[in-house]
Amino acid sequence: MTTEEIIRPENLVYRKPELLNDVPMHYCPGCSHGMVHKLVAEVIAEMGMTEKTIAISPVGCAVFAYKYIDVDWQEAAHGRAPALASAVKRLWPDRLVFTYQGDGDLACIGTGETIHAINRGENIAIIFINNAIYGMTGGQMAPTTLLGMKTATCPYGRDVHLHGYPLKITEIAALLDGSCYVTRQAVHTVAAILKAKKAIRKAFDYSMQGRGASLVEIVSTCSTSWKMTPEKANRWMEENMFPFYPLGDLKDSKP
């Protein structure tokens, strides 16, 4: 069989999601954001919600998410995305409303907005990219930076006496009565990506069913700020991030 015989429309098994725009993404090579963008784009399309989605982008590396996924977007001030989403969902209850935020945005400057939006049981989904570092500003310490991990603002490693402990905000979210689904996923392997996609789909479905707030944490890499190749970053994440941020569902309130 020749390659020409295989490359025919009827044999197509995988292509870039239709909702992912053709414009190249500004993310660094191997960045987890790209994988998660693809999953979000696929899930919106599979739910048939393209015309009913209002997405909220953060301040951080994903600030330009609105350039890449072909739906309506609001770009929020740093950390405030859950406040925007709360209002939008209450004003447009039949719309799919989700935020897409990094660790600095969600777990540091926006901790208040995150906790209270979840605690009110807003019918929104929050996609939380946790790569334990501030990517866009050049690799500074994040609330989720691991102890001992070196960043631009803890160049000798995060020291608990100087910097305090890494924040497990996903565990906190699971304790709140307003959350219906809280899970921690990753996108470093095919199997993990398929699970992460199911998690995003569940969070979006729950929000449309009015069950409350969902938080999908994606433990991610930042190969540039971690100063590793994408491959090595994935291994480093498995060895160092997963023990502290274990994958799996923390809460799933069945109806």
Binding site: Y27, V187, T189
Partner: peptide, 12 residues
């Protein structure tokens, strides 16, 4: 796994 959606796959 491609973060940038660069790869299209066909199968027969």
């Amino acid at each position: 796994v491609c973060p940038d959606g660069c790869i299209t796959v066909y199968r027969k």
